[in-house]
Every structure is written in C-alpha cells, then in structure tokens.
C-alpha cells in the first residue's frame, strides 16, 4: 500500500537554506558570456546559440505498467503518457512534460513547487498498484539550448542524428553527448533541452561554451533566476 511508503517534501522552500543551481559555481568560474539578446548590448553580436538553465524543476521518474500510470496521470495532471518510444508529451502551457525513457519508465518534469503535491496525489490515485515514483529533482538539471545554430552545436557533440528534420518536435532520447549521458529532447521548434546529471552539469556547460564559441554562444541570464 502507498501508506507504507515514506514520502517527504525534498524541497527546501520552507527551510532557511539557500538552494544553489547545479551550475551556480560554473557560472562564476567559467563565466557567462552575454547572449546579446536580452540586454541588447551594442558591443556584442547576436548569439547564434544561447544556453539557459532551468534549475529547481521537479523531476519524477515513474516506473510501472503503462496503462495504470497513464490513467493516473491523466486524472491527476491532465496529460497522458507518450505512447511511442522516444517521444515526449507537453501540456498546454508547456510547463509540464512526460517523456518515454524505456518500456516501463517515464520522466515527468513539472514546476518545482508542484513536485511534492503531484507525487502525493499520484500515489493516492495509484493506491496499491505495482509502480515506483522517485523524485530525482536534486540529481539532475535541465539545460536549454536555443538559437539558429543550436542544432549545429549539438551535431558537434552527439552521435545521435539531430538534424531538425530527423529530430522532430516532440521527440526525446537518451543518448551520448560528449562522452556523457544526456536526455536530449525537443519540446518545441525553437528549443532543445538537455537533462544532465548534476555531477556532469559543469562538464556539459563548459563543453557547450567551448563547442559554441564559433557561434558566439551566450548565456540567457534571466532563465537562471527561477523563483525558489
């Protein structure tokens, strides 16, 4: 039964601890080149690729039977599980997404402050069903890549075919990126998302800065100030 599982709110909202994004130190140490977009700096040219971190989102791993989970998720969140391998469904306002990871595993990403409530409601709805829900929010972070040359930066880094015609909107895969694991996905036509392990976030960030140098890669500053 679900009440035998100890569920607790992993977020420190109510605590006095200041949370740092996995890239906070990287931004200081490796710098944050201006994207030349938001600030409209006269000196810098417009970046052809822009990095942005969306930290402190809620990442939940759902495991179990597709039918049971799909039903619970539709009821609780109004979004169904993606039916096809390597696909992604995003809700109407683009804030919540479910991605296929393997035949019995999905990644659910929601705004950070909804995580605990959602997990509780899912568990209540699933009752004693044979499923697992794991909050992995603290273990990974989401890096966004946008701009006209975003796919070219990706092409330099991953063996997967990221040609925009082959990697269509609504696709998401787990693959190798610069020798490390990433979940790579395309929620809409203008953005790519990379979900990386927290411990690899600095490495991936520095790789992106280096790989994107020729496209004048910049960092979107506003995106890291997520309300905590």
């Amino acid at each position: 039964m679900s009440n035998s599982v100890h569920v607790y709110d992993a977020r420190a909202d109510h605590a006095t601890v200041t949370a740092e994004s996995p890239l906070a130190y990287s931004f200081q140490r490796s710098g944050m080149p201006a994207s030349g977009e938001a600030s409209g700096e006269a000196s810098g040219e417009k970046s052809r690729a822009v990095i942005g971190e969306r930290a402190f989102l809620g990442h939940l791993i759902l495991r179990g039977g597709a039918i049971v989970l799909d039903e619970a998720l539709r009821e609780v969140l109004g979004v169904g599980l993606p039916g096809r391998p390597n696909s992604l469904t995003v809700d109407a306002d683009g804030q919540r997404s479910v991605q296929w990871l393997s035949p019995d595993e999905w990644l659910l990403i929601v705004p950070g402050d909804e995580t605990f409530g959602l997990e509780t409601r899912l568990r209540a709805h699933l009752g004693g069903a044979h499923v697992a829900i794991v909050d992995v929010s603290a273990g990974q972070t989401l890096i966004e890549l946008s701009g006209e040359a975003a796919h070219e930066v990706l092409m330099k880094s991953t063996v997967y075919d990221v040609d925009p015609h082959a990697f269509t909107v609504g696709k998401g895969v787990t693959t190798l990126f610069a020798k490390t694991n990433v979940i790579l996905r395309r929620p809409d036509a203008s953005r790519w998302e990379l979900i990386v392990r927290r411990s690899f976030a600095d490495y991936v960030y520095r790789w992106l800065l280096d790989a994107g140098e020729e496209y004048g890669i910049g960092v979107a500053r506003e995106s890291r100030h997520e309300p905590q």
Partner: peptide, 18 residues
C-alpha cells in the same frame, strides 16, 4: 561503427550506446 537496432527503442542507434 555499427548501427544497431534496439527492439525497445525501435530505432537504429550507434554502437557506442551498447
């Protein structure tokens, strides 16, 4: 490098992933 068809992902992937 081989392209290997994963029957679960239902597509061809690089050998490096296997």
């Amino acid at each position: 490098m081989f392209h290997i068809y994963c029957p679960y992902c239902e597509e061809l992937r690089e050998e490096e992933e296997f």
